[in-house]
Each structure stands twice: as structure tokens, then as C-alpha cells.
Design a protein around this nucleic acid. Structure first.
Lengths: 178, 178
DNA sequence: CATAAACTATGAAGTAGTAGACAGGTCAAG
DNA sequence: CTTGACCTGTCTACTACTTCATAGTTTATG
């Protein structure tokens, strides 16, 4: 049996958060003491750990609540797949902010060190390591075959415009260069 | 002279957003019509475009407000540098969610295709392209020299634990492989 | 056994940025 | 002059919490 403070300390969540989870019906204590204090059992703890696991995926509390209510975790997989898509979009958005800031800096004053890789720096890197253009083409082709989505993400992460990304990928799949 | 609806349509911001910007004092119309409607001028439009530019960097509205109030954009550069740091942290957090989901999937059922690259897939890719271990070492060393922060980000993006990242980078800087 | 420290409860309000509800104003057509 | 379409202003809700205020309870100390 734990009070809310004890549970907070051992679960790396704040007391406020536990109160909030109770208030929205996501995670309520299984009982109350004579003085109306919330009392949590070990079974509650296990439930909370499940919730924390799902939280590490970035699922919304609402979705987590839905999963916890159904037994057998039915519907979990599609939710996680949706979350993966969301994550790609979110990361892409942040990447584009990075590149935009770097561009602003460039117009202003030469930025001393490279914080964010772009296409030019990347190619230079591969060349230094000994990959010529033919080898790079092969690398793209293999990337595209192995993990098309990750290939797309990677190219966009270099700040390459969407249209050019499409061209590169098409070529990687065996199309003719433009 | 524009009304709020006209400005919204031509600025790719919603009416709600313009109303909110007015309510927090970030972007207010320069006048009101006889019927108390907000009236915006072309000068207002220019101001709004500035705001949109800063928004594309992900700066908070509060920070944007501060920048707009000072002329000469004094203090902009440190704010953007802070934002770059924030962006790295945010992207790192999202990527750790990605890797966590992929790990969950792996325990559950074999995921058919690779959406998120990990260390193993990456090495395989470089090998296929013709980079042996020595060449990869050289590649790391060059990456570290050219853009240490980006190198760190990249390694973490592959889901490599922070400690191992530190080791790789140390070795890249000329340390001995233990 | 009294007192203080440290806990607990509830409720309200704040955060960022947007979406939507609602009541009322404006304008053209009939 | 009225109808309807479209506009406007203000206010509320949302996420996932945190912070604060106020009041009651338990625990440790002297």
C-alpha cells in the first residue's frame, strides 16, 4: 500500500501528474484511507508502469486510456503505426526549422561550425571516406531497397527539397537520371 | 485596408490565429472600422510576414514578440542559437520514441519493413556501398572533425546508446579503440 | 501531549496555439 | 423591407500538465 507521495517518488512521475491522471480517469487508486487519502496497491503500480511504457512512445493519454480499457491490448498495433507516421511528420517539421534557421544565419554572417548537415557537407563526407559518385548511386539504390521510408526521411533531413528527393529515389529504384 | 478575414485568407494564417495574436499583443490591427471591425494596413501585412518568418524557426510567440519590439533585431542571433539547441533536444526525444516503438514491435511480431534505421542496418548499407571498417573509421573521423554536433545527432538517430556514442566519437578524435 | 514539519485533499488558474460555438452585424438580391 | 449568406466580436475548449491557494491529516520531536 502506497500513498500518492510514495508512489510519485518511486515512479519518476510527479504527485501532480498522478493527481491529474486520476482526475481524467486514466489511473485512479484502487482505494482510499479512512482520512480519504488515495491508497495504491502493487497492482496499481503495475498498471502505472504499463502507462509509462505507452507514454514513452508518445501516444496521447486518451489513446493510452483506450488501450488500457481493452484487455489483450487489442488495437495497440495500428495505434503505434499511426504514431510512427506522426513521428516522421513531427521530426520532418523540426528538421525544416533547423534548416530554415541555418539559412537565416548564412545570410547574416558565416556560421563558424556546422551544426546541421546539408547535402553538400554529406557528399563531401562520403567522398572523403572514399565513395565516388558510382558508389554513392549504389548506396542510394541499396538504401531505397532496404528502407524506402527511412531513405526519404534521411534525404529530407539533409534539407533536400521534396521534389529532388523524389527524383533521387526514382533514380535509386532504377529510373534514368532526370 | 483589410478586414481580419481578408488578411487570414491571404496570409495562410487562420482567423483564430490572428485573433489570438491580437489578444496577446503580438500583432494588433492599426485601426478599427466604424462598426468596430479590425482594419489592417499593408504595413501591418509586412509586420505579419516578419512574424511568420520567425515562426518558421519555431521560436515561441513570446520570443518573437520581444524581437519585434526591439528595432535592429537585436538579440535575435542568441535566441536562434538557443532554438537550435532546443531543436536538437526535441528531435532526439522524438527519435527515442521511434526507436522505442520499433523495439516494442520487434518483441511482438517481426516488422516487415524497416521504417527507422538502426546501427546494424546502417553498417550493412555502408558495407554494400563498398566501405569496409577502415573506411568507416575514416568516415567517422571526418564527420567528427567537420561537424561534431551533427555527428552526435546522427549516431543517436541510429538508436546508439549515449555511452557508446561517446566512445565512437572519442575514437574518431584519435583515441584508441579500447 | 502540544507543536511544527511534512504530508494530503480539492479546486482554480496558468501554459501555447488553434479550433469552434455563439450571437450579432453587413450586404446583395428580391 | 426581408431573407439568406457571409462576415464580425467574444468566449470557451483542447493537451498534458504544473502551480498555487486553502484546508485538513499524519508523523516526528521535545
Amino acid at each position: 500500500m502506497y500513498t500518492i507521495g510514495q508512489l510519485a517518488k518511486t515512479s519518476a512521475l510527479s504527485r501532480s501528474t498522478l493527481l491529474y491522471y486520476d482526475s481524467i480517469g486514466l489511473f485512479s487508486p484502487s482505494g482510499r484511507s479512512s482520512s480519504n487519502y488515495r491508497t495504491y496497491t502493487d497492482a496499481d503500480r503495475a498498471r502505472l508502469e504499463q502507462i509509462c511504457t505507452y507514454r514513452r512512445t508518445g501516444l496521447s493519454l486518451r489513446d493510452i486510456g483506450r488501450i488500457m480499457k481493452t484487455r489483450g491490448r487489442q488495437g495497440l498495433v495500428p495505434l503505434l503505426e499511426k504514431r510512427l507516421d506522426e513521428l516522421s511528420r513531427e521530426i520532418r517539421a523540426l528538421r525544416s526549422q533547423q534548416h530554415f534557421i541555418v539559412k537565416l544565419f548564412k545570410n547574416d554572417r558565416a556560421i563558424s561550425r556546422i551544426r546541421v548537415m546539408d547535402k553538400g557537407s554529406w557528399i563531401k563526407l562520403l567522398e572523403t571516406a572514399g565513395l565516388d559518385e558510382a558508389a554513392r548511386d549504389k548506396w542510394h539504390a541499396e538504401f531505397e531497397r532496404l528502407a524506402p521510408e527511412a531513405h526519404q526521411d534521411f534525404l529530407e533531413a539533409l534539407g533536400i527539397p521534396v521534389k529532388e528527393v523524389a527524383l533521387i529515389r526514382k533514380y535509386s529504384r532504377g529510373g534514368r537520371r532526370e
